[in-house]
Each structure stands twice: as C-alpha cells, then as structure tokens.
Design a protein around this nucleic acid. Sequence first.
RNA 1: GAUUCAGUAGCUCAGUCGGUAGAGCACAUCCCUUUUAAGGAUGGGGUCCUGGGUUCGAAUCCCAGCUGGAUCACCA
Length: 576
Amino acid sequence: MSQIQLSEQEQLRRKSLEELRTLGIEPYPAALFPVNVTSKEIKENYSDTNNNYTDVTIAGRLMGVRVMGKASFAELQDEKGRIQLYITRDDICPGENKELYNTVFKKLLDIGDFIGVKGFVFRTQMGEISIHVKEFLILAKSLKPLPVVKEKDGVVYDAVTDPEFRYRQRYVDLVVNPGVREVFSKRSRIITSMRELFNSRGYLEVETPILQPIPGGATARPFITHHNTLDIPLYLRIANELYLKRLIVGGFDGVYEFAKDFRNEGMDRTHNPEFTVMEIYIAYKDYFWMMDFTKEMIQKVAMDIHGSTKVPVGENIIDFGHFEKLTMSESILKYTGIDISGMNDADLQNVCKELGIETAPSMGKGKLIDEIFGEKVEPHLIQPTFIYDYPVEMSPLCKKHRNNPELTERFELIVNGKELCNAYSELNDPIDQLDRFQDQLKLSEKGDDEAMFIDLDFVRALEYGMPPTSGMGIGIDRLTMLMTNQPSIQDVLFFPQMRPEKREKVDTPEKYTEAGIPEEWVDALQSLGYKTVELLKQVEKPGKLHQELCGFNKKNHLNLKNPSQDEVAAWITPKI
RNA sequence: GAUUCAGUAGCUCAGUCGGUAGAGCACAUCCCUUUUAAGGAUGGGGUCCUGGGUUCGAAUCCCAGCUGGAUCACCA
C-alpha cells in the first residue's frame, strides 16, 4: 500500500518508526526480554511496609500516557491487566542527553506499542500501585492505532461495539475491550475442569476421525469434501459417537473426546458451522447413572468457574444445585395439559393442529412429539431439567426402554430453554441397530434429508459385542455461553464464521506504466479511486480526471508536474 | 431463505423541515512542570457503505445492491 492511502495517524507512526531507526533504536528487536512478574502479581502482593518488588522487569502494551513535563504516567497492559508506570526524565536519562525521554518516549512512542521496563514498585500520592521506571526498551512498534477504550470504576467508555469489527478483528477486540480475554480463559478452565473429572475416574481421552466416509452419529446435513488419492467423497464429522462406541467394543471402559463437529446448516445466535462437543462413553452404566454423573460434572464446572452452583445468565439466576427430572410425556402434560402417551401419528397430527404447530406429512411420530416439545415445553425450562424417555423414532442409536418398547432410554439436559446435553443407554443390540438404521433410510426416502446413513461397519462392530454402555454429549460452546453469561455463540468463539471480507482489486504500478501512464501518478490515481487500469479506461470525461489529478497534486503537496489534458486523455483512450 | 433495523472522522455517536459535515475521545502543535476514563488552547483529519433515481440542491426522500445485527424459518 502506498503512503498516501494510509490514514494520517498511520503515516505518523511509520514516520516515528523511521526516526527510531535513525536514532539507532531497533523497533523490532530480536532478543528475548526477561519478564519476571505480571501486573496482577504486583497488584495482589505488593506491600508498602515490606517494600517488596524492588527489581521488576515487566512488558506489555502501552495503553495510555499522561505527560507532565519532566515526569510522566503511563498505562502498561500485560496479559493479566494493567499497571501504572511512573517515568521521569532524569531517571531514564541520567546523563546530559535527554533524548530518550524528550524524543523517544514523548514523541516516538504510541498507544499500542509493546515496551519492556525495569524498575521498582511504589505507591503514588494518589494511592495507585505503580512502577518507577529506571529503564525502558521498545519491543515492538504498533503501526495501526488501536481504538482507545477507557474504563473507570467498572464503567467502560467508548467500547468497540460494532460486531463486525469485533469478530473480524478479534485481536483488536481482545486487546481493547475489558473482559473479552476473561471469557476465553474461562472457556479453557471449563474444559480443564471437565477433563480433570474424567481423568480422575480413569477415562481415556481419545481422538477419532474428522474426515469420515459416512457421517454418522447424528441427524444433520454434513459438509462434503473430496480425497484426491482415494478419489472418494469424505464428510466432515457431524458427531463422533459411532467411533467412540467402536472403542468401547475394543475394550476401553471409558473414553471421551473434545471434538469439533461440523454441520452445514443455518447460523444464528446459538449455531456456528463448526462447534465443539464433548462426548463420553462409559461401559457397564445406564442413563440413570449418567444423569448423576452429568449433574456432578456440571456442578464441578460451576464451582470451578463461579465458586457457586448459582450462575447468572441474562435475566435469570440458574441454580445448578438442583436438577428437575421429567419424562418427555410428563413434561408435555405439564406444559400443555395433553397426555400424549399411547397416541398414534394421526392423534399427534391433531394435537399439533390444536396447538398451532405446523407439521409436514413426512413427519413421523417421534418428529411430531419433538415439535410439540420444542414449541411448547423447552422454552419454559430455565432451571436445569432432565427430560428423559424419548420416543424410539427420534433416537436411532439409543437402547429401547426396559419397560416400554415405544420409548428409549434417553435424556437431555435443558437449561435456559436450550438443550445442553444429550445422553443414552447406548443401543448395543446389533440386529435392532440395523433395523433402526433401515427405518431411518425409509424416512429419508420419505423426504427427510437429515435421516441417517447406514454405517455397516458400526453394525459389524456391535456384532462382536459391546457391553452395556451409557454415553453423553455436551455442547461446549453452549456450556461456555451459560457459564460466562454471553448471549451469542459468536462471543465464546475466537473466530466465529463470517462471510469473507471483500478485498478490492488493486492493480500493480507496472500495469499502469504498461498502459502508458507515468508511475509517479499511480498513487494519486489509486487514491482517487481508480484502483485498476480497467476502471481508468472506463472514464468518460478526461477533462474531469485531469482536474481531479491536478487538484490532488496541489492538495497533497506532491509537487508533481501537472500533465496536460491531452496527455491524460491519451492514458484512457486505447492506443491504435 | 423471509421480515426488519443499522452503516457519518481511527473509536463512540449527534445531525432538525432536503439548504456549506458536527461533538467527545484519539492524532498534531503549543502552553502548563504537573496525577487518574489525561489540565488548557489551537489545528489537521470525511467516498456521510456502494450505484442509480427524484430535486435548483440529497448524509437526509425513493429504488437496487453490499455488509452486519435482531426476529422468524431451517436446524439441536
């Protein structure tokens, strides 16, 4: 990019960069900088009486400077927070030459620059713990100005709020908006907390394929790709269930995986095309055991993040101290007054009509019940609720209920009106499993394009025998949204999926000179919006272009010799 | 995919009835020899998202498009 297309502030910073080099200061030094403390440690442990921290070395971004003549106060931001620096001219310039303070510090440093300082900690007259700087060093110059966000007593001023800016340039969001980094460090702690529990029980963390020839384990539209050597289609996984169960067949008693799944579906506040799921499968357990385990896991996470089972989410306080349990039909009875047990397809169609729920002829019994539940029950379930005993049609991988052949031993955990976990007593009868796959196939022939593919290798694995097993899956993004009180999945993903940014096509200077345009005018032309020769050729009034160029020359003091009107006209008319 | 709202300086945002483009912060210069979202003064900085249309005149009204948000649909 040419200088002229940069903003004034960017040009000034580039100028400062050059001046630093002129002064013999490398703005991007190579050597390590031996940091020995963080802002947080100092603020937590400094004591006026002990006068500890007499020799600290700390580094971070310069986030604000208040110059007060020969003394200055500055804000240094490191990973853990901010700390005030106190810098005096005569401390950092002990000799006659005051250039380091007057020129380098006061003029050539900018907000956003990385610096390293050495000094001692003290408390200012205003009572703020600060570092009295003895030496400072530029570690990396920042050429693009950061938006300045200020905070006082928890009130944030001028926060960067434009979602497009925040998500596309997450690095800036993380630097300037208080609390954003905290969300992501909590996300990491949530995962660690779960992993601690699983490992303490001796369950094995495993990895299974993301590229799958048959996308199984869930009903969803997959992403499809192609392997060149094998010349076959491959699908990005929509779930890892079938692979994890193969490992139970293989003899592991407990396996789990934190996995990225991919679903080629709509995007909104709770859906991103790629998302993180934890699935765990444990042999010799059933879904009742898994309910208790799920409860224990979530309580541990809440305690580790909040130190309490009570978690604020939006308007509500969610209390993970107590989990309600309702069967699917109990819950529908509770919220609609209708007892659906024993109803057939036609009955359910009528119930839907009564309740004003749209249906399609392709919908089976399971789908209809799911519609009623999703429409009339789920939104009411704010406090943690286990919904269990799902219709067999909507759970093709789940074991039939021990007492009722129309149901399966499945539960979901609903929190804040959204599904959070899904768990089964896993189906381990291979013949039943094949039947259920075939029923799914019939559904797909009926027009349900989300019905499952048949994974015959998975059936073969079951034929060798899988012990009774309970499995559970939990959406890590949604769990993080709950635990960090973020309303949108985009706020708990570093880089949520977005439409690619449009880049304007810009021709190289050579293209212009090839077209007979002097190189010295290329910058001016591009700044005026003629980014390509093609665009230039479309100009209809050469006189106007000529005026624009002369005006630009004058306005920006380029001191170029203005071309004649005929010359400009010649640039845009094709040569014969 | 449908509906709807928004897009103005680096950031946050005003902009009346259609009549010369504004503020705070940021930036620059100077003052102040010094303390808290940085005290004062002065100044520079704009494709008012893009393209059409209406009009003597459009940031403003109309149409289309782009991008994003929200709601719905789809989907766990």
